[in-house]
Nucleic acid binder design. Sequence first.
DNA 1: GTACTTTTACTCGGATACCGTCTGTCCGAGTAATTATGG
DNA 2: CCATAATTACTCGGACAGACGGTATCCGAGTAAAAGTAC
Lengths: 160, 160
Amino acid sequence: MQMKTSVEQSVCAILLLHMLPDKAVLPGEVISQQLGASPTYFQKILRKLVRADLITSVPGVKGGFRLEKKPEEIQVYDIYLAIEGRQSLYSSSGTLSHMLHLNLEENYCMINDLMEEAEEAWIAVLQRETVASLSQKLNINQFQLNIDALQALVNEKMVV
Amino acid sequence: MQMKTSVEQSVCAILLLHMLPDKAVLPGEVISQQLGASPTYFQKILRKLVRADLITSVPGVKGGFRLEKKPEEIQVYDIYLAIEGRQSLYSSSGTLSHMLHLNLEENYCMINDLMEEAEEAWIAVLQRETVASLSQKLNINQFQLNIDALQALVNEKMVV
DNA sequence: GTACTTTTACTCGGATACCGTCTGTCCGAGTAATTATGG
DNA sequence: CCATAATTACTCGGACAGACGGTATCCGAGTAAAAGTAC
C-alpha cells in the first residue's frame, strides 16, 4: 500500500508549470527532463492531469502544457485524484458479513466506517494545501536561489 | 494504492479469536473457513499476526491460535502494521530535489512533510479504535443474534 | 498397567505459480507552425 | 510576392513488454496429543 511515484512527479510538474508566465507553455519532454522522469511514460501522466482539467495541452509546433486552473484552486488532493483515481484506500470485501453469516442485503460494516473516517482525516490534510501555498513555501530559505536558476532554465525552453 | 484485503481478514480473525474463552485455541483452517478465506494462504497471514505478537500459536494436535494481548491493548493500527509493514504510505523519490538541482545532502522535501502529516492524521484514527471497542460495537442491534450463532459454532470447533 | 512406538492433527518455512498494476517503450495518427516550392 | 505543399515539432492513443507485489497452492519438516502395541 504505497502511493505511486507519479503523484510526487505530478506535484512537481505542476509546481514547475506554475513558474511559467501566462499563456506560455512547456513541452512535455522538457518537463520530464527537469523532473528526471521517463519522457515517454510521463507524457501519459501529463495526459491524466489534462483529463482532470488541472493543466491544458497545446498540440503542434511550439505546443506544450500550461496550468489550467489558478494555483490557489488546485489542491494537492486534486492531483492525487487525477493520478490515483477516486477509489478509496480501503474497500470492504465483506469478510465481516460472511463471518457473521449475514446476507448481503445488510452489508453494513463497522470496519468500513472506521477506515472511511481515517481516510477523510487523511484527505483533509491534502485538501488544505494548494499549489499556491506549496509554491509559497518554496519561496523561503535557500530554495529561492535554486528556483531562480530553474526559472532561467525554464525561460529558455518555454514557448510563448 | 489500496489496502490489502488481508488486513480486513486479519481484523475479523482477531475479533473471532476474541470470542474464545481463555486458554482455548482455534485451528487456522477453522478460522479461514469462518472468514471465507483461502486456508493455505491465510495460514501465512496468521503467521504475520504471530510475529507481531498479536496472537499465539500452539503446534501439534489440538493446537491452533489464541489471542496474545488483551483486546483493549490491540489497536486496529497494530493489525495494519502486522500485515502491511512499517513503511509509510508515501516515500519521496527526490523528484523535487532533482528539479531544483539540489544535491542529495539537503534532501528536505516539503511534499514529504505534507504527506507525513496526512498519514499521521490517518493513523490517529486507526489507533483510537481497539479490538475491545470494535467488539463492543458488534454487541448492538441485530449483530448480537449472529454473534450468538457464531459463538455456538466456534464452541464446537475450538479446543481447550 | 506401564513403557514404547506409531499415527494423527496441527503449525511453520520455503519454493513456486498466477495475475493485476505500475512503469516504460514504441509506433502511428492528429495538429499546427514553419519552411520550401511553384507560378 | 503569394498560394500551396512539404517538413517539423509537438500532443494523443493504443499495443506491448518487464518488474514487482499480493494472492494462492503444494510440499516437507517440526511438534505434541492421541492411539496402538508389547511386555
